[in-house]
Design a protein around this nucleic acid. Structure first.
Lengths: 147, 147
DNA sequence: ACGATATAGTTGCATATGCAAGGAATGGCC
DNA sequence: GGCCATTCCTTGCATATGCAACTATATCGT
């Protein structure tokens, strides 16, 4: 097998290439829609987690979103600095649970209709089948165990 | 509608959350497999593009992978510094076409079996249905117009 | 030949991502 | 009580990502 044939197989088969491509395309749509608020997709995810959980622990959010705690730690930092999040004191000194500030809540409410618009754009872009396929592929990994 | 209900809808419906989740999970598998070579998934993508194209123009690669040219520009930079890529002179002074160096070729060949292993792991992780769904969702966006 | 326009890449800035290593606090176990 | 392991988070480091603005080069119209 030549290198070019190997490359050809990777181009034809690689799942990573495909998911990364879709990720860039889709994330871009949400980012563009949210830009007027100075908000990024990943930040909206954190806002939503906090809005849903009320008081959220970084470790729990990281586990739900399957992201590294250190990544989340710094994302939260930036959002604290903007006044969107605040730490909630906890008996256990190791924890740094956080919640939305009043500004954070207001921002989330402003972001919601923009999210809806972006969501529609993505649905149009991927098509009904594409959306169905994507949901099906993700469903095993995105569980929303209610609290 | 309360904020929590909005958050609930986003959690239940958001395509961005799902694709980003899948992206993190899948990219992590490839990254882990490639780590012994000091290679990241995105870099392997560039290596493969160069192996496939022979001489690759940044703009073309960026277009195929739907990524920002500035992102690619810096990725290529790092890979040049490692001796994996080299610039090919071009008549048009604007262009900075590149190709694999001998080392880059050797690296790509060493990476291939690791990629195969990671690909299998991902297939196991997502299941046959998941893989099929993902391919179906991506197929409209990942065309491989041969050269 | 010249100026306007278009194209290809690069650079400044900011955010995001994850591994490895380092604290800090808690909870056993003896 | 004191040590050890565990849990939770943060920090150092490196890469990746994209927008906006910029430079350099080429092309087109006149």
């Amino acid at each position: 097998m030549t290198a070019r044939q190997h490359a050809s197989r990777m181009a034809a088969e690689c799942i990573g290439v495909r998911i990364r491509l879709l990720n860039r395309i889709v994330t871009n749509v949400y980012d563009t829609a949210l830009r007027p608020l100075g908000l990024k997709t990943s930040q909206l995810n954190v806002l939503a987690a906090a809005a849903y959980l009320g008081v959220a622990r970084p470790a729990e959010v990281a586990e739900r979103l399957q992201m590294d705690v250190s990544t989340l730690s710094r994302n939260i930092d930036r959002m604290k600095n903007r006044g969107w999040l605040e730490v909630v004191p906890d008996e256990d000194g190791r924890m740094q649970p956080f919640q939305l500030t009043r500004e954070g809540q207001a921002l989330f409410e402003k972001a919601f209709p923009l999210w809806e618009k972006a969501q529609q754009q993505v649905e149009t872009l991927l098509g009904d089948d594409g959306v169905t396929h994507l949901r099906a592929a993700a469903e095993d990994f995105f569980r929303i165990p209610p609290r």
